[in-house]
Design a binder for these strands. Structure first.
Length: 824
DNA sequence: TAACTTCTAGTTTTT
DNA sequence: CTAGAAGTTA
């Protein structure tokens, strides 16, 4: 059945039967549908699982692992499961420990970055890093680059640090070191030069950024045969979640773990199972390559592909809408979700006159859903394409006293006061961390200004040492102040020797004067509270899972042979699903990260700092509250709600104007819409608005093209005929007032407005163009003044004109909304 | 050094 | 419009 034995060299006992009915008697496999069962009990070999939204993907992944263990096809140590987010990794661990009464110790389950971190700590020597290297987050990386630019007199106008940071991150994602980056002009040569300098700086300071974490561990595996082969031998079963989101480097990393390039031909040892959904690929903009899915099938010679198309989440009106929409994309692997649930409520579509009116409608609707239909507020989500849209909705909810929660703000470990505290802690670990040094050298203020720091930096560069070591070279008062700072940190380091993590942090908060500083600040109370929260976070980090539970990387001897043989204990032992679950608390008995060469463990402080960098923490408090959930569509991926509102369904917004120009961009927007729709279980509401405040200007948007790609039968337009009155409705009158152009005839403005505003399922009246406009004529707009019509497009409500205004540039205006008069 | 003013740009984002 | 950054002044 298989062209080559994928398990060559592996113990026979680990090979699942290539055929034969799975033991359906197992309670593990109960309640799985045929597709899921097939995926869970896949025979050895590589496989691609196309898991549609709401098809029980996580369940399949975890059950697969449990099944492998239970049947003795794998040992915990032979399993590596990789995800993108900490949340997904945690969920997998949680579900797995609920399924198996055995601890998950021994399995490598984590994010790409988390696993890379573990690998690099264990083999830091081979990777050329200090054991307690620190991790730079995006903020830290940017400030490191800024510092570098200043030092090397880089013109920040021509090379904005933000752009450089993006450039460096992209290079690393492509697997390129400075020497590998093609250069064509002086600009790109300069960028590569800065990239090189940045690398040297990081190396000197003992820090790595997120990209480096991936790239360095990829290179570690690639260039170090014993280490690579050790892990290849160990991980017989590799499972990858959200495979459609992997970038080039992550895929290459997986290939290193799974097998070798043999004379241009790729031979994978273990079994790689990639789970993903090409229709939910929404991160191409940050380097994700959906193409990895087809590459995987080709390069791993994948013999088995399973589609999970049974959806357990949504009613069919919602699902039909999703299917119909996504069918407009080309280049799909092909998948159609189905459900056994009924049609459910139609998808409701609403047209508002303004963004304010749209928000108000949402609030009214939400109140009804809660009051009349008994939905919980936390089961109602409002999704939008871009963050700017949340404001109006927030204020409408606020004014109506509806509790809400906005996702996507600053996260706990990203808060300024927390970053300051962490910087001090880092300096305790590594005095040469110049990024942390500069962050807190004058915070709280201690009379060390920009001038002093400049002098210090020059001295450090001249001596080729860290800022910490260069302090003594700075003369005068500045030098004295700097000396006092360094002495304070050094004393603190002495004082905290032997203290536990909590003690270290409390001592630090005291000695550095951080808490004292915020006591005098007006907004300081919250910050002090957060610092207290940091102590709590450290406390629970030590006592809870996380620190201590993880697998120990097997130490290797100089030939790369494991010093401790992986334990081949009878796996069946303790795997009886009916066995009582041990409820002994997880103790930090075994340190999580061990040096493979020395057996040295990472200090609790270093481990906590790693944790802080890799897991920025939940954003915003009151997570448990019964509050309406507000978030971008991107942030909603992986979540589900009873009721979902998708606002701002307008051309230019969704699909976004920056993406609508090329096909790939538009297809990603469509996938984004697909993700948004499939979040809903029971009710789905779509809305668009005729006018919207954006960048301080009123924009007139026409409704999204995506409406035309939804099945008419599943939709219901609910815009009331009377809607559009009151203060929110833009007047249809011309600039000279309601009376002149249309007149307040017998028809009355009510009748007139209702027809104009209500958006019936379209083509009802396809009357001749009533606007009387054509290209070339001059028009007047109340806001923009006089302009010239360049083009007309569409009919009826969709009609819009491109007008060039001398003062405001060329704009597309929806004629059903914009106040245009023909200039005689 | 800190408070104040002016300027500018403005999708999506995890690790 | 409005947040964040850069520039300016006491």
């Amino acid at each position: 059945m298989f062209p080559q034995d994928p398990f060559s060299g592996a113990p026979d006992a680990l090979v699942p039967p290539h055929s034969g009915a799975p033991s359906a008697a197992s309670p593990l496999l109960a309640h799985l549908n045929d597709e899921q069962l097939a995926a869970v009990t896949l025979p050895a070999g590589h496989a691609l699982i196309l898991a549609g939204a709401g098809s029980g993907k996580t369940r399949v992944l975890t059950t697969r692992i449990a099944w492998l263990l239970q049947n003795g096809y794998a040992t915990p140590g032979g399993i590596l499961a990789v995800t993108f987010t900490n949340k997904a990794a945690k969920e997998m661990v949680a579900r797995l420990s609920a399924m198996l009464p055995v601890n998950v110790r021994g399995m490598w389950i984590g994010t790409f970055h988390g696993l890379c971190n573990r690998l690099l700590r264990a083999h830091h020597k081979a990777a050329g890093l200090p054991q307690s290297f620190q991790i730079l987050d995006t903020q830290d990386q940017l400030s490191a680059i800024k510092r570098l630019c200043k030092q090397h007199n880089v013109d920040e106008e021509r090379f904005p640090p933000k752009q450089l940071s993006y450039f460096i991150a992209s290079c690393k994602e492509e697997g390129m070191r400075p020497g590998d980056v093609p250069t064509h002009d002086s600009d790109s040569r300069k960028k590569v030069e800065i990239y090189q300098l940045y690398e040297e700086q990081c190396q000197r300071e003992g820090v790595v950024d997120f990209g480096e974490l991936m790239l360095r561990s990829y290179e570690l595996l690639r260039d170090n045969d014993p280490i690579r082969e050790h892990y290849q031998r160990r991980f017989q079963h590799i499972l990858v979640d959200e495979f459609q989101d992997t970038n080039k480097l992550q895929y290459a990393w997986l290939k290193q773990l799974a097998g070798n390039d043999v004379g241009g031909r790729y031979e994978a040892r273990g079994s790689v199972i990639a789970v993903g959904d090409d229709d939910q690929s929404i991160y191409a903009f940050r380097g994700a390559r959906v193409g990895n899915m087809t590459d995987f099938v080709r390069e791993f010679d994948v013999q088995r592909q399973i589609k999970l198309e049974q959806n357990y989440r949504s009613y069919s009106n919602i699902l039909d809408s999703a299917n119909h929409l996504i069918s407009h994309n080309s280049r799909r692997l092909g998948k159609n979700l189905r459900t056994t649930q009924g049609a459910g409520e139609p998808v409701r579509v609403y047209e508002a006159s303004s963004d304010l009116a749209e928000a108000q409608w949402m609030v009214d609707e939400i109140k009804q859903l809660v009051r009349n239909d008994g939905f919980e507020r936390k089961e109602i989500a409002v999704l939008y394409r871009s963050n700017a849209q949340s404001r109006v909705i927030e204020s409408a909810l606020f004014n109506a006293s509806v509790p809400y929660r906005v996702y996507g703000g600053l996260r706990f470990f990203e808060r300024a006061e927390i970053k300051h505290a962490l910087a001090y802690l880092r300096l305790l670990e590594n005095p040469h961390d110049d990024t942390s040094f500069t962050r807190v050298v004058n915070f709280p203020p201690r009379g060390i200004g920009a001038r002093s720091i400049e002098v210090l930096q020059d001295a450090a560069r001249a001596a080729g040492c860290s800022l910490h070591d260069a302090v003594s070279a700075v003369p005068g008062k500045a030098g004295a102040n700097l000396g006092a700072f360094v002495a304070m940190v050094d004393v603190l380091r002495e004082q905290t020797q032997g203290l536990n993590l909590r003690g270290i942090i409390e001592q630090m908060l005291e000695s550095t004067g951080l808490v004292e500083h915020f006591r005098t600040e007006k907004e300081g109370a919250d910050r002090i509270e957060n610092l207290q929260e940091l102590v709590n976070a450290a406390e629970s980090f030590v006592t809870q899972e996380g620190f201590g539970r993880d697998a120990v990387a097997l130490p290797l001897d100089e030939h790369g042979t494991p010093l401790i043989q992986s334990v081949q204990s009878p796996v069946s032992q303790g795997l009886d699903p009916n066995a009582p679950v041990l409820d002994e608390p997880l103790k930090p008995a075994v340190p999580g990260i061990v040096d493979a060469d020395t057996g040295e463990t990472l200090s609790p402080l270093a481990a906590f700092l790693t944790h802080a960098a890799l897991e920025a923490g939940d954003n915003q408090a009151q997570a448990g509250q019964d509050a309406v959930q507000l978030m971008t569509v991107h942030a909603s991926k992986g979540l589900e709600f009873d009721c979902v509102f998708i606002g701002g369904m307008e051309e230019g917004l969704f699909p976004h104007e920056n993406s609508a120009s090329d096909r790939d961009g538009l297809e990603e927007e469509r996938r984004l819409m697909y993700v948004a729709i499939t979040r809903a279980r029971k009710r789905l509401y779509l809305s668009h608005s005729q006018t919207r405040m954006l960048h301080g200007q009123t924009r007139y948007n026409i409704k999204s093209r995506f409406f035309d790609e939804l099945p008419e039968a599943a939709l219901k337009w609910i815009t009331p005929k009377q809607q559009g009155f009151g203060s929110y409705a833009p007047s249809f009158a011309t600039h000279s007032g309601a009376g002149s152009a249309y007149g307040s005839s017998a028809r009355g403005q009510f009748g007139f407005k209702s027809e104009t505003f209500a958006s019936p399922p379209v083509p009802a009246q396809k009357a001749a163009p009533s606007h009387g406009l054509r290209a070339g004529i001059a028009v007047f707009h109340t806001k923009f003044g006089e302009g010239k019509v360049l083009a007309i497009e569409g009919t009826g409500d969709d009609a819009r004109a491109q007008v060039n205004f001398p003062r405001h540039g060329t704009k597309w205006l929806a004629l059903s909304v914009a106040k245009l008069t023909v200039v005689e």
